[in-house]
């Protein structure tokens, strides 16, 4: 290969993020006839999300797939919050279409001023609610539950609106937190419940599907700019074309994992009235849509399409 790039991600090498970057690597290799090789390095070997994002900006890492909550926090990329507004997007296919469309491209392009070339989106999975003691079936059941969240403003506002007691806890302590009862619940995707063995300590899942967990594939802007035009084009196309493929993969995988979890004794519940929860969080969406014009545009596009 003429060019070899190391792309990192912070998830385990059995996570959907690994599959995403591998899809990208394969597409790039095909489009360039093997002239560009992408080496995928997972398992946090190149650092966690924040370090990966910084590394790409600083040029110490070629590229990375980074979870979207990291972007507003560590790079001031406010527009990326659009991807996690509660209950705005409802299906994998819908999100894949928007991300592969003009708004998705605008969000990728907005990263350029921060020193990152945005190339693609790969999904970690729709988020649901996992609780350890009692099944959560109505809005009232959420009240006061100590719920582990990623402590960022958008998620804090969302979960306070629902009525839980959001707890900021390092991801590595969630397993023992659920085991001992330091926390009552966690908002999380199904595949992590399985891969992190969380079902051993908490057996009640409620399919809330409150928001997705996209990762954005980024590359150091200067390194990208220094490439010949045909290679640049191949990278951009490879990123663009694999979005739908990966979202379809994660969508199907979720069905498989749900069945798997059931067989392990996990109860899968539905909320009796999801609209109540949606109504509670609507003001948060309202508040955030004023933060960046791209967020407003994202919401408008989603609503127009559905």
């Amino acid at each position: 290969a003429d060019y070899t790039f190391k792309f990192g991600h912070a998830a385990s090498s059995r996570h959907a993020f690994q599959t995403g970057v591998e899809m990208f690597a394969k597409a790039v290799a095909e489009k360039t006839g093997g002239r560009v090789e992408i080496e995928v390095i997972g398992d946090r070997q190149l650092g966690d999300d924040k370090q990966l994002l910084e590394g790409v900006q600083l040029g110490t890492i070629d590229g990375a797939l980074v979870s979207s909550p990291t972007f507003p926090l560590a790079a001031g990329a406010v527009a990326v919050d659009a991807l996690q507004l509660p209950f705005v997007v409802t299906s994998y296919d819908q999100l894949a279409a928007v991300l592969a469309g003009p708004v998705g491209q605008k969000i990728l392009d907005s990263l350029s001023e921060k020193g990152m070339k945005g190339l693609s989106y790969y999904e970690a999975g729709l988020r649901h609610f996992l609780s350890r003691a009692k099944p959560v079936k109505s809005l009232a059941d959420f009240q006061g539950l100590k719920t582990r969240i990623v402590p960022i403003p958008l998620h804090k506002a969302t979960w306070e609106a629902v009525g839980t007691n959001p707890v900021g806890m390092p991801y590595g302590e969630v397993y023992s937190g659920l085991e001992t009862g330091v926390i009552d619940a966690v908002e999380i995707n199904l595949s992590s419940i399985e891969s992190e063995n969380l079902y051993q300590n908490a057996r009640e899942v409620t399919l809330t599907g409150h928001y997705f967990w996209p990762g954005i594939l980024i590359m150091n802007q200067a390194r990208f700019d220094g490439l010949p035009d045909d290679i640049k084009q191949a990278l951009v196309e490879a990123g663009h074309e694999t979005i739908a493929e990966h979202y379809a993969f994660v969508r199907d995988d979720e069905a498989r994992v749900a069945a798997e979890l059931k067989s392990k004794g996990v109860t899968i519940n539905q909320l009796d009235n999801l609209d109540e929860m949606r109504a509670r969080t609507a003001p948060v969406v309202e508040q955030w849509s004023a933060k960046d014009p791209l967020i407003g545009e994202f919401i408008a596009t989603v609503r127009k399409g559905s």
């Binding site: 100590k146 402590p151 007691n165 959001p166 707890v167 900021g168 330091v182």
Partner: peptide, 14 residues
């Protein structure tokens, strides 16, 4: 706060 009052200080860890 978390155990006694069931009101976590979300900024504490940070």
């Amino acid at each position: 706060f978390r155990y006694g009052l069931n009101a976590s200080l979300i900024w504490a860890e940070e």
